[in-house]
């Protein structure tokens, strides 16, 4: 009996969140041109969200590649087509695994720190101080991180993919004895630059925007307490992961 209004308010809350996020996106987009004046800040943020995520991205990429190499070699050998290990690894990585796994790692590594940082700036009045110095925090704090996410993500995903291919090659060729030429010529025969590699690049640029948008939004609208910042950080990981996967599905189904 009583759970009807609860469910209603849950849906209402969810819609309100989505609406607030969309509104925030519009504000950030409006602030983007102004943020170009602070381009050094964007560069600094590319360093923080991009360069500082390299280690986790590279390690995870390598391991994913090693596992993919092992699994696919085993499975494909049942059909006698181990020659296409490289092809399958590359296509799976370029189209899905690279962008998605990188985005999830990115949400955990860079998204959380963006939320915590901006949330703390909110809690310690740093955002208000910027406003008082006639500096728009949307243009100075949020937009550069958003841009940095969009720029850094495709690069991170590419690095992830390169290491994963390296890992798969290591397993399939150096370890399991697949012919090196077969590995590469199969791959180069089947993988297309536009439909595979570049599609992944567009995807990961979108994911970079999604994750940093959620992260900055959560930080920006956090309750100015340590508890509020803690909750906001958790929400960043949850929401940006869900959004990433949902948008991945939509993009794959309708755009690619």
């Amino acid at each position: 009996m009583s759970d009807k209004p609860v469910r209603g308010s849950l849906i209402g809350d969810g819609l309100a969140q989505v609406g607030a996020l969309a509104l925030f996106l519009l504000q950030v987009l409006a602030a983007l041109p102004r943020s170009l004046r602070h381009f050094t800040e964007t560069i600094r943020q590319i360093f923080f969200v991009g360069a500082m995520s390299l280690i986790i991205i590279m390690t995870c990429g390598l391991f994913i590649g090693l596992v993919l190499g092992l699994q696919l070699y085993e499975v494909l050998s049942r059909f006698g087509s181990t020659a296409s290990v490289g092809t399958v690894v590359a296509i799976a990585l370029y189209r899905e695994l690279g962008p998605v796994v990188t985005a999830l790692l990115f949400a955990g590594r860079a998204g959380t720190s963006i939320t915590a940082e901006i949330g703390l700036m909110r809690a310690t009045d740093q955002l208000a101080a910027m406003e008082m110095m006639a500096v728009d925090p949307l243009a100075y704090v949020v937009a550069p991180r958003f841009l940095a996410g969009i720029i850094a993500m495709p690069l991170l995903a590419s690095i992830f993919n390169a290491l994963a291919i390296f890992g798969a090659h290591l397993v399939a060729v150096s370890w399991l004895g697949l012919d090196n030429g077969t590995f590469w010529s199969n791959m180069t025969g089947a993988v297309d630059v536009w439909t595979d590699v570049m599609n992944g690049v567009w995807k990961s640029a979108v994911f970079g925007g999604v994750v940093t948008l959620v992260a900055t939004f959560q930080g920006y609208s956090t309750a100015p307490t340590s508890e509020g910042v803690a909750y906001a950080t958790t929400r960043t990981v949850v929401y940006s992961s869900i959004l990433t996967l949902a948008i991945d599905f939509l993009m794959t189904a309708f755009l690619m």
């Binding site: 700036m121 310690t124 009045d125 740093q126 208000a128 406003e131 008082m132 006639a134």
Partner: peptide, 14 residues
């Protein structure tokens, strides 16, 4: 605001 200097109660340094 560009012509106003404001000292925050909690300093609010970046």
């Amino acid at each position: 605001r560009e012509r106003i200097g404001y000292l925050f109660q909690n300093s609010a340094l970046l």
